[in-house]
Amino acid sequence: MNIATTDTEIISRVLHGENNLYAALVERYRNFVFTIAMRFTPHREDAEEIAQDVFVKAYRNLADFRGDSKFSTWLYTITNTTCISFLRKKKLAVHSLDQEHVFEVADAQNSDFKANQVEAKSRMQMVNQAIQMLSPDDAKIITFFYKGEQSLEEIGRIIGLDPNTVKVKLHRARQRLRNKMEEHFAEEVKNIAD
């Protein structure tokens, strides 16, 4: 199967009948959607159910994606709405988007890593732990930019800030993240650099 490289190409081909290519979008964004869902519920099973619902809704409404923003921004909106609806139906307590255990639980979702993947996961957990030490605002901006691959404009739309303000906040958040990494994981950071 010849898979298109961009989201827009994949979406276009899916809309023109190549439905099996939708799996490439699911694979590309499953961790992103799952991580967001874990911010709303501490239960992995609920987050998995939400993620499935998100991808079903996204597939059914794929023709509504106009391409004004990244697919991930559009998918974030569906995920956010689906999480809130799910929690209302289940009458669960809504958890903060920035609870400390969210990234750790999300990182633990895959257990069949090879040796080099285990090392990469360990590094990612270290980074996620450092992100957890940041303020909720810093953690949110770092997550949107790096994990969600959102542009400054998209982040601004999501959190209601001017893109220039987001740029400044991102720069400061990166500095604080680097400080946390150096302060709490100095030996690990040194080993990575070697």
Rank of each mutant, 00 (worst) to 15 (best):
F40C: 09
T41C: 07
R13L: 15
Y59P: 00
V14E: 13
E27G: 05
V14F: 02
A58G: 05
K70E: 13
F34E: 00
N20R: 11
G17V: 01
E49I: 03
L15A: 02
R39Q: 14
N61P: 08
V26C: 07
V26S: 00
V26P: 04
N31Q: 10
E48P: 00
D46E: 14
V14M: 06
A23I: 02
H16I: 00
E45A: 12
R30A: 01
I36H: 05
L25P: 02
E45W: 13
R13E: 15
R30W: 09
F34R: 07
A63M: 08
A47F: 04
H43G: 01
D68E: 14
S12M: 07
R13D: 15
H43E: 09
D64C: 04
H43L: 11
E18W: 10
S12P: 00
R60F: 11
K57I: 10
H16W: 05
R30G: 00
R60Q: 11
F32N: 09
V56N: 12
K70L: 11
S69G: 15
T41I: 05
V33S: 03
Y29H: 12
A24R: 08
Q52L: 12
V54F: 03
G67T: 09
Y29W: 06
T41R: 01
R39W: 00
G17P: 01
N61Y: 06
K70W: 09
H43D: 06
V26F: 11
A37H: 10
G67L: 05
M38Q: 15
N61E: 02
L25M: 03
A51Q: 13
I50Y: 12
H16D: 10
K70Q: 12
V33I: 12
S12L: 06
L25Q: 03
S12I: 01
R66D: 15
T41F: 02
A63F: 02
T41H: 05
Q52I: 12
E48L: 09
D46L: 11
G67Q: 08
I50R: 10
F65S: 06
P42F: 13
N61H: 14
Y22I: 02
P42K: 14
I50G: 10
T41E: 04
Y59L: 13
A24L: 12
E45G: 07
N61L: 08
A24W: 00
N19Y: 10
